[in-house]
Amino acid sequence: MDLRIFTEPQQGASYDTLLSVAKATEDLGFDAFFRSDHYLRMGAADGLPGPTDAWITLAGLARETQRIRLGTLMTAGTFRLPGVLAIQVAQVDQMSGGRIELGLGAGWFEEEHKAYGIPFPAERLARLEEQLEIVTGLWATEPGATFDYAGVHYQVENSPALPKPAQDKIPVLIGGHGAKRTPRLAARYADEFNMPFASIADSERQFGRVRTALEEAGRKPGDLVYSNALVVCVGKDDAEVARRAAAIGRDVAELKANGLAGSPAEVVDRIGAYEAVGSSRLYLQVLDLADLDHLELISSRVQSQLG
């Protein structure tokens, strides 16, 4: 089971804070550092000092880390034109020496679009499908050839399809709860399918839909990595769990029901239940980015017990 650290900087984090968490992620042996792609805080958080851009952040971290994978969960398709996104991600992959992964979604948080003057079209899923076709098509185009695409929402003409990533293929993550279109998109474009903030039963059901879609698309069910994103709150004892839950404004019972919370032994057992339904990678949503002792505890007492 791979454990990855997943941050939500829109809730309040500077680049320096994110750098500290990324370096701890690397030093403590976690597999990757991922971040959300949002421009507006959610809930009661003040969001100070303000939003940071996902791909500018990852470009900086690409030069200041050596081992960990880096990526987004998920980049909002509404934020960037597909050709520009392909250039940005390829460049950051070069800057990292080939450690980048792209999670790409349709975009859903209308308020942040209003707050920063970003269009929020109704046909976002249709646009996402065209974006996936363009981004992956640009990267896959052989050097010296050109790429063209004539879609409803985007048109690409005579593109040199440059620059190329450092990796032969940047892993693409697609995720979500949708019963039909989401599995179909994953089957066509994804290297990993992520189920965000879902129960074990819902994860098993959605993973099954994705496997069926893969078979219908002529791919093998084992071609994809299946993963979950879950909030994490671990403590050496009940008092420490309660303290960490209070720090992020959550209830312990709710966290245990909907995330990975409790003692290290409780969390290891919970991870095993997700593994049993097919998940082989977990994105641990860490909400208190100042609490690096939390990461150390997860590394020493949870990650150390996983195969």
Score class of each variant (00 low, 15 high):
250 R>A: 06
229 A>L: 15
216 E>H: 02
223 D>H: 09
21 V>A: 07
30 F>T: 06
214 L>P: 00
70 L>W: 02
257 A>W: 14
112 E>D: 02
249 G>D: 15
299 S>D: 12
199 S>Q: 02
280 S>L: 14
85 L>K: 09
206 Q>C: 08
97 G>P: 07
255 L>C: 05
276 A>P: 00
295 L>H: 04
288 D>P: 12
306 L>N: 10
278 G>Y: 00
102 L>N: 02
272 G>L: 14
194 N>V: 00
303 Q>L: 14
157 E>Q: 15
115 A>Y: 04
243 R>H: 00
3 L>D: 05
202 D>R: 13
79 F>Y: 12
267 V>L: 01
58 L>P: 08
208 G>T: 08
79 F>R: 07
155 Q>T: 08
190 A>P: 00
208 G>M: 09
119 P>Y: 10
253 A>C: 03
155 Q>D: 08
3 L>I: 01
231 V>S: 02
290 A>K: 15
33 F>R: 09
307 G>T: 11
107 G>V: 02
159 S>W: 00
124 R>D: 12
189 Y>K: 09
164 K>M: 07
59 A>C: 10
306 L>H: 06
251 D>G: 05
281 R>W: 11
235 G>T: 03
136 T>C: 02
254 E>G: 00
70 L>C: 03
305 Q>E: 03
289 L>S: 06
140 A>P: 01
301 R>I: 03
303 Q>A: 15
127 R>E: 01
196 P>A: 13
236 K>Q: 15
60 G>C: 13
121 P>S: 08
97 G>R: 06
131 Q>E: 13
8 E>K: 02
85 L>D: 06
75 T>Y: 02
149 Y>V: 00
256 K>V: 08
258 N>M: 15
200 I>W: 02
200 I>K: 06
209 R>Y: 06
10 Q>E: 06
253 A>N: 05
191 D>F: 03
226 Y>N: 09
168 D>G: 02
130 E>Q: 10
285 Q>E: 11
295 L>N: 09
158 N>R: 14
264 P>T: 06
11 Q>D: 07
59 A>E: 05
278 G>D: 06
43 G>T: 14
286 V>M: 10
138 L>W: 01
61 L>H: 04
115 A>G: 10
221 P>A: 12
101 E>W: 05
174 I>T: 01
154 Y>D: 13
172 V>P: 05
